[in-house]
């Protein structure tokens, strides 16, 4: 089964626990199997990851409405700075758990962009396909996600 690690990784960061991530990936695999005829043969990874992300967001809206209650607002979240803070130094001595926890603190849309870009090496175009947003939106989500990560992962001075 190709792309299963990528699918699980994305679901794991979106759902933030193992059990829900497994349920989502299993459900998404079945959907992919059923709707395989809709696949147009361009990028099988982006196609499958799009199903995984849609399944994850549907699950979150249904089962954890509190988390998703505040509709993600590009403008609202865009109000804060996209620019890196020149005074903050990222701490390299942190372990894997800290980095994971930092990603999990981001809003789901940012988590998605960062996971695909940094952990799966996806291009902006691929991320745009998976998330169903324009490339410009991908660029600003990444900028704001990184800015927030910079703050979280900085040395406490």
């Amino acid at each position: 089964m190709p792309h299963l690690d990528a699918a699980y990784n994305l679901a794991r960061f979106l759902m933030r626990n193992e059990q829900d991530a497994e349920d989502v990936v299993q459900e998404a695999s079945l959907r992919a199997f059923r709707f395989f005829e809709n696949f147009r043969g361009e990028n099988s990874r982006a196609w499958f990851l799009k199903i995984v992300r849609n399944t994850s967001f549907t699950f979150l809206k249904k089962n954890r409405p509190a988390e998703m209650k505040v509709e993600f607002d590009e403008e609202l979240h865009g109000g804060q700075s996209e620019m890196m803070d020149p005074r903050l130094e990222v701490d390299h001595s942190q372990d894997r758990q800290t980095v994971r926890a930092a990603i999990e603190q981001l809003p789901p849309e940012f988590r998605e962009a960062i996971t695909l870009r940094e952990l799966e090496g996806a291009s902006y175009k691929e991320i745009a396909d998976v998330a169903g947003v324009p490339i410009g939106t991908v660029m600003s989500r990444l900028a704001r996600a990184r800015r927030q990560l910079q703050v979280i992962l900085s040395k406490q001075t």
Binding site: Y8, V90, H92, E118, L149, Q150
Partner: peptide, 24 residues
């Protein structure tokens, strides 16, 4: 430089998850 430092910190600690065998 800060963008690169952040990217390095993320890839260095390989925070990605792999699908467990039982899920497969």
């Amino acid at each position: 430089e800060q963008i690169r430092a952040l990217r390095e910190a993320m890839t260095e600690h390989t925070p990605g998850y792999r699908a467990p065998a039982h899920l497969r």
